[in-house]
Structures are given as structure tokens and as C-alpha cells.
Computed example of a mutant assay.
Amino acid sequence: MTTLEFSYSLNQLSSTLKPFALKLTRDMDDANDLLQDTMVKAFTNKDKFTEGTNLKAWLYTIMKNTFITNYQLMVRRGTFVDTTDNLHYINSSGSLVENGVFGNFTMDDINEAIDNLDDVYKTPFMMHFRGFKYHEIADKLQIPIGTVKNRIHIARKFLKEDLMVYKHNN
């Protein structure tokens, strides 16, 4: 088969390969790139094609292998592994060490905000925080359950205002 005949055959089969490329990539631009890569590889390796065999099957195999190779490269590019003597995994979140100082400041601020609450709100709030049910708090403080719920709600509101600085700090 001459180069011209081979080129003509590739051109004829390109339209049948496009749906397969689209099925593999699920994106039109990526499918066009894959089709182009397949045609370039087929043309540069035309000497490896055995005349009389199925050209279409040969092209499908090239396309499938090209897709797999590109996918593996993309996955490998997404993860970087440091191969130095320390063997640290750069992208590993398992080796994340957090500084506890900010947590201490936060807890100090939370405790201060709770201490600043009036006792009328702080007592039911802290009881609820420690796990008491609304009706238990009401019985213990000898106030209606609705009052307990209201005071806990107001305590949360005051704490939320006092600790607003931490709202967007994660």
C-alpha cells in the first residue's frame, strides 16, 4: 500500500473513529485531540501495519492505547511523590501537622465569652452543653421549659456575636 493509499484509507476511517473517541473521552475537544493523535501515530507507524489485515481494528487499538496512556499520564501528573531519602509524600494530607496555639487562643476566647454571659443565660446554657435535657434544666432551675429554651437561644446568640471573629476562620 502506497503512502497516498494509506493516507486515503485513514481519511475514510476517521469518521467512524470519532464516536469511539467521544465515548472514551466524553468531551468533544478531547475526542478531536484523541482522533488527531491516533491518526498521527497511525501515519508515522504505517510501516508496522500489515497489508491485508483489518485497518479499522488497528486504528481502534491505537486509539484505545493512546487514550489509556494519556489517562495514566494525567493521573500521574496529579500526584507528586518525593523520592528523596526522606520519602515524604508531598500531596499526602496524612502528614499534616497542626499547630495547637490557635486552638488554645480560640478556647480562651470561647471561655471568656461564656464567662461574660449573665448567670440567667449562662446557667441553662452550660447545663444544656453538659448534656442535660430541657425538662431537666427546667426542673432543676424551677422555671418553665419555654424559658429554658429561650435563655439557651439568647446565650447562643450572644456567643455568636462575641465570637464573630472566628466565623470565617477555618
Rank of each mutant, 00 (worst) to 15 (best):
residue 2 T to I: 06
residue 4 L to C: 06
residue 5 E to R: 08
residue 7 S to I: 00
residue 8 Y to Q: 15
residue 8 Y to M: 13
residue 8 Y to I: 14
residue 11 N to Y: 11
residue 11 N to L: 10
residue 12 Q to K: 15
residue 12 Q to E: 12
residue 13 L to C: 13
residue 13 L to A: 11
residue 16 T to I: 07
residue 16 T to W: 07
residue 18 K to W: 07
residue 19 P to T: 06
residue 20 F to S: 06
residue 23 K to A: 11
residue 24 L to C: 02
residue 26 R to Y: 08
residue 29 D to V: 11
residue 34 L to Y: 01
residue 35 L to K: 05
residue 37 D to V: 02
residue 39 M to D: 02
residue 39 M to E: 05
residue 40 V to P: 03
residue 44 T to M: 08
residue 48 K to F: 07
residue 48 K to A: 08
residue 49 F to N: 00
residue 50 T to F: 04
residue 51 E to K: 13
residue 53 T to A: 00
residue 54 N to A: 06
residue 54 N to R: 06
residue 55 L to F: 05
residue 59 L to N: 00
residue 63 M to R: 00
residue 65 N to V: 03
residue 67 F to S: 02
residue 68 I to Y: 05
residue 71 Y to I: 10
residue 72 Q to V: 07
residue 72 Q to P: 05
residue 72 Q to F: 10
residue 75 V to Q: 13
residue 80 F to Y: 14
residue 80 F to R: 14
residue 82 D to W: 06
residue 83 T to S: 10
residue 87 L to A: 14
residue 88 H to G: 01
residue 91 N to L: 06
residue 92 S to I: 03
residue 93 S to R: 12
residue 96 L to Y: 06
residue 97 V to T: 15
residue 99 N to A: 00
residue 100 G to I: 10
residue 101 V to A: 15
residue 102 F to K: 12
residue 103 G to Y: 05
residue 103 G to D: 09
residue 104 N to V: 15
residue 108 D to E: 13
residue 109 D to P: 04
residue 112 E to P: 02
residue 113 A to N: 03
residue 113 A to C: 00
residue 113 A to R: 02
residue 115 D to R: 13
residue 116 N to E: 12
residue 116 N to C: 08
residue 117 L to T: 01
residue 117 L to F: 02
residue 118 D to W: 03
residue 118 D to S: 14
residue 119 D to A: 09
residue 120 V to Q: 08
residue 123 T to C: 01
residue 123 T to R: 12
residue 126 M to N: 07
residue 131 G to Q: 04
residue 132 F to I: 01
residue 132 F to M: 15
residue 134 Y to S: 12
residue 137 I to N: 00
residue 138 A to V: 01
residue 139 D to Q: 11
residue 144 P to R: 07
residue 148 V to E: 04
residue 148 V to T: 04
residue 150 N to I: 09
residue 151 R to I: 00
residue 152 I to W: 01
residue 154 I to N: 08
residue 156 R to F: 07
residue 156 R to G: 08
residue 157 K to F: 09
residue 158 F to I: 14
residue 160 K to T: 15
residue 160 K to A: 12
residue 168 H to C: 10
